[in-house]
Amino acid sequence: MRLRRRLSADPSLALPIETSRLLLRDFVSRDLEAVHAYSSAKEVTRYLIWGPNTLLQSKQTIRAFLDDQKERPRINFDLAIVRKGTTRRGDEPKLIGGVGLKLVDWDNRTADIGYVLHPDYWGQGYALEAAQGLAAAGFRDLGLQRIVATCDQRNKASARVMERLGMRREGSFRRSKYIQGGWRDEFLYALLAEEFYV
């Protein structure tokens, strides 16, 4: 891949990333059950280019995350979103979704951000908190100038997260992605480093 050859340094994030309620960390193989719980849900994937996953597809996803962690330079930072603390039953902190940052244009210090949550945790601010934590790390640790994101125009909840993150809608693409059996329109959002730190 051309991007890999052009990177002059080994981009890295200081992991794990902590927010007030969350821990963002690399995925591990034992995360399969939690990943499959959200990636196999139709309501989670209805606006995404993947899913709902079979168990085999979820296993392949975990394997891809683990492989990306070994790449040098690393360009994909897919991280588990884990709630801090223990549950009422004293269980370990719970993996509730994923958030990712992909370096798409290193020469211009640009990365793409995305997030996905188990539906039990929708509407509680977790997607925004995870995106804020990862965006801050991207600007600080990677020296990014710009973070972009796209979403299916029907996905109002995702667009709200981007807007609350401070991203500006920069474009509208017609029939740009094949999503769940049909060509869909997308919005493009972007956030600059100087806007994030205002």
Rank of each mutant, 00 (worst) to 15 (best):
G85K: 13
F65E: 10
K156F: 09
S12H: 12
R6D: 11
G97D: 04
D67M: 08
P119T: 03
T150I: 07
R174M: 13
R6P: 11
A41G: 12
F27G: 10
A131M: 11
R168M: 03
W106T: 05
G171S: 00
N53E: 11
S58K: 05
A37S: 10
T87F: 11
D120V: 06
S29R: 14
A193Y: 08
R175K: 15
M1F: 06
A131W: 10
F173G: 06
L144C: 06
I113V: 09
E43H: 11
A190F: 01
L188M: 04
G100C: 08
P93N: 04
R25V: 09
T61L: 15
L101K: 12
K156D: 09
R25W: 08
I17C: 02
L23S: 13
E163M: 07
S20E: 15
E71V: 07
R175H: 12
E43W: 09
F27T: 07
T54R: 08
R160T: 12
P11E: 05
L192E: 02
E18N: 12
P119M: 01
E194M: 11
H36V: 03
D185G: 02
R109I: 01
D68C: 12
L56D: 13
I113A: 04
S39V: 00
S172N: 12
T61E: 15
V161A: 07
R154Y: 00
L13W: 10
R174Y: 14
R5W: 11
S29W: 12
A135E: 03
S172A: 15
D68Y: 15
E129L: 01
A64E: 12
G114I: 05
R174V: 09
L117Q: 05
